[in-house]
């Protein structure tokens, strides 16, 4: 049995009468990439928001390295070691690329405030392939480069668990291949990743395991090839444009 880094135990979130996440439980092994998939509106992003502390859940617990992080505010969760990217990019447009990466670094626990951060930001930019544009203003970057920057900033937090919210969405075929390589290289550096994704080819090539959600419930769990042939999953996806 591999070592667990995160555990969701019967997490639940309702918006009024709509139960967006209904008693969902799953474990996350250290070093793996877990795909969180399902049709639109199935509760994937809400689950991510519960993990990152953006939303407060109604009941259930989330543990990180044996420590309960559910109920903590988002800033506390981040300091415990959970970083995320945003589906709709949230960069600070009037800051430089380097400064945006420093945002990820500057508020980690125990991080001193010094010039070294500028030098270290280069390492993260190298990983995502953006170091040649370190001094650009973020607003001048192309869409894919802004996505790279989002990722570099999340990496700069040195997270134990990285949440990627449709990070590969909207990329063309070449960019997608590059994106997949970047995510794989991050895994090799030892970061555990949960990714919400619709791009099936990326899920097949990257994910060690998948959790499939539909209408707020977990309907399947297993390797990508296992879950994608599961009749329940096929039924949930039937008619979906992203069906691979």
């Amino acid at each position: 049995m591999t070592e667990m880094i995160m555990r969701l135990d019967r997490t639940r979130k309702a918006f009024g009468g709509l139960v967006a996440v209904n008693d969902v439980s799953f474990d996350l092994a250290r070093g793996e990439i877990l795909g969180l998939i399902g049709p639109n509106g199935s509760g994937k992003t809400t689950t991510m928001n519960l993990i990152s502390g953006a939303l407060r859940m109604d009941r259930g617990t989330i543990e990180l390295d044996g420590e309960v992080i559910s109920g903590l505010a988002a800033n506390r969760v981040a300091r415990k070691g959970v970083a995320r990217t945003f589906q709709l990019l949230r960069l600070i447009s009037d800051m430089t690329v380097t400064e945006n990466v420093v945002v990820g670094m500057a508020f980690r626990p125990g991080q001193p405030w010094n010039e070294e951060m500028v030098a270290r930001s280069r390492d993260y930019l190298d990983i995502v392939g953006l170091s040649d544009k370190a001094d650009w203003e973020a607003s001048k970057l192309t869409y894919i480069d802004q996505k790279r920057l989002e990722l570099a900033r999340a990496l700069a937090l040195e997270p134990k668990v990285l949440l990627l919210d449709e990070w590969l969405a909207g990329l063309n075929a070449t960019e997608l291949l590059a994106g997949i390589e970047i995510v794989r290289s991050i895994q090799k550096l030892g970061t555990t990743i949960i990714m919400v994704e619709h791009v099936m080819s990326a899920i097949h090539s990257l994910c060690d395991r998948c959790v499939v959600m539909n209408a707020g419930e977990k309907i399947a769990e297993g390797t990508p090839s296992q879950v994608l042939t599961d009749p329940l999953v096929v039924e949930a996806y039937l008619g979906e444009p992203h069906h691979a």
């Binding site: 990152s52 953006a54 988002a74 981040a78 800051m95 626990p109």
Partner: peptide, 24 residues
């Protein structure tokens, strides 16, 4: 020039994002 000053720029830029990077 301080961390607090930088934090304020980040908060002014995007408060929601700031929360997810450890800022209160």
């Amino acid at each position: 020039r301080s961390r607090l000053g930088f934090a304020l720029r980040v908060i002014g830029g995007d408060e929601t994002m700031a929360r997810h990077f450890g800022l209160n």
